[in-house]
Amino acid sequence: MADDAVIDTPEHAPVVTDGGVRRRDFINIAAVSAAGVGAVSVLLPLVSQMAPSADVLAESSTDVDLASIQVGQGIKAVFRSQPLFVRRLTPKEIAAADAVPVASLRDPETLAQRTKPGKTEWLITMAVCTHLGCVPLGIVSTENRGEFGGYFCPCHGSQYDTAARIRKGPAPKNLEVPDYAFTTDTAIKVG
């Protein structure tokens, strides 16, 4: 720091009066602090430039037309550059999901909580495994759906049930349900 050197300079006798010394110290400390404040404010643009840019943020909603999806079928859509599962559950699958005691789940949620009221057959989830981000298999019935008939992640073997809840394997959470709303009876808007 500048302050002590000021006082110790050989040719410049220390200012004896308390007020004088304090004032000198104060100015030097204030100047160095101002430099510090300036340096920290420069970090704002440097850090925030790495956050998503305006064009990326704007790509934040997707419309999906459900009309062509038959019971038991599903499609993959794209939401925020990530795959999205849109699946129309069979009554059997709904029953299987409802039969599971919620308390026994790793991430306890009912199918009703994960779908819209009156639209229980439409299961809309991100197609991103909550373990490390792979895309699980199972949206098409010919793919491996795992032991619980939902989705199976081939990377590390996480298994999801027909409500896309984690049942077995390393994933910590159920497949995420994004924000969405029905715009008509057969169309949704995600995000």
């Binding site: 440097l46 925030s48 430039q49």
Partner: peptide, 30 residues
Amino acid sequence: VLAMHYASNAGIAFDSTEHIMRDVNYGWLL
């Protein structure tokens, strides 16, 4: 930090510069 957003491809270099000016946070300042 500009190099994090710039694309050195003759087809899109100009547009990527404008992308920095318009869409990147504080890109105009940088």
